[in-house]
């Protein structure tokens, strides 16, 4: 019975993850082989050509995306952590309205922001700039980070911070020496999700960069697909490389991922 369930489970996973296998398989095939009438199910005539192409043409884009993602993590946490502390631990009037506002702004479709940010950024010279993209990507990560961190910090007993303040520590010292260390896990989760979001962002990347000075990897793949879709092995090799952060995170930080995923939906 139980072994049977495991077998079914393995089958389900195999079917659902087949596209990923197919991506890896295609990434190792020579590009001509991909245009044959019937596909090769295994990369028997395996080649690293695709990866050579991917690194050659998209390597810089991967690096750009790393910079943007790290920048977004930093900006998001710097802005979100103090706000969460105030919302969770300090008696701030209007806290509920602020939380509502943050929930609401998450609903705003990105295309609307892109539309107006494009014209504003054009005037400010922020098109094609890392800072511009980091600030734009943060629109998706900051509300999420605040809500997630606040949910965690609410559960930190107030006596803890109050005791610290009685000892003469100011709000900022309490924040830095008590709250932040306690919230380490929540901060990691918020940081991880900020990284993943910025890494995967396509909408802002495609509207707010022209490809002149740098291109995030998502745009790189999009233009790669659009320009030479017969180079599927190169596209798929790039896709594999672009999936690496997600895969790594899943392996080393799974509990944070699940924590972040459920925090938005399941009550604190």
């Amino acid at each position: 019975m139980k072994a049977g369930k495991t077998l079914v489970g393995v089958l389900v996973v195999a079917v659902l993850l087949f596209p990923l296998y197919w991506m890896v398989n295609a990434s190792f095939q020579p590009s001509g082989a991909l245009l044959k009438p019937s596909p090769d199910w295994f990369p028997v005539a395996g080649t690293l050509d695709g990866y050579r192409k991917a690194l050659g043409t998209q390597g810089g884009h991967l690096l750009s995306s790393v910079l943007i993602a790290l920048g977004t993590v930093v900006v998001s946490l710097i802005i979100a952590a103090p706000a969460s502390y105030a919302l969770a631990q300090l008696k701030v009037r209007g806290a509920t309205s602020i939380v509502f506002a943050l929930l609401i702004v998450q609903m705003i479709p990105g295309i609307v922001m892109a539309n107006s940010l494009y014209t504003v950024f054009g005037n400010l010279g922020l098109i094609d700039s890392y800072l511009g993209l980091v600030l734009a990507d943060s629109t998706a990560t900051i509300p999420f980070a605040v809500l997630l961190l606040r949910a965690f910090m609410v559960s930190v007993p107030r006596e803890l911070s109050e005791a610290s303040r009685v000892d003469g520590a100011g709000h900022w010292r309490t924040f830095f020496s008590i709250i932040l260390p306690i919230s380490r896990n929540a901060l990691v989760t918020a940081g991880l999700f900020s990284f993943l979001f910025a890494w995967a962002d396509f909408l802002f990347a495609v509207t707010l960069t022209t490809g002149q000075s740098f291109q995030p990897i998502t745009v790189g793949i999009y233009r790669f697909v659009g320009n030479q879709s017969a180079d599927w092995n190169g596209v798929m090799a790039t896709a594999v490389l672009a999936s690496v952060p997600a895969a790594v995170l899943l392996v080393i930080a799974q509990r944070f991922v699940v924590a972040g995923l459920t925090s938005g939906a399941v009550k604190d």
């Binding site: 400010l124 010279g125 922020l126 094609d128 700039s129 800072l131 511009g132 600030l135």
Partner: peptide
Amino acid sequence: ALAMTGCSPA
């Protein structure tokens, strides 16, 4: 930060 990049790349 906003202001700085505002004038740099041109």
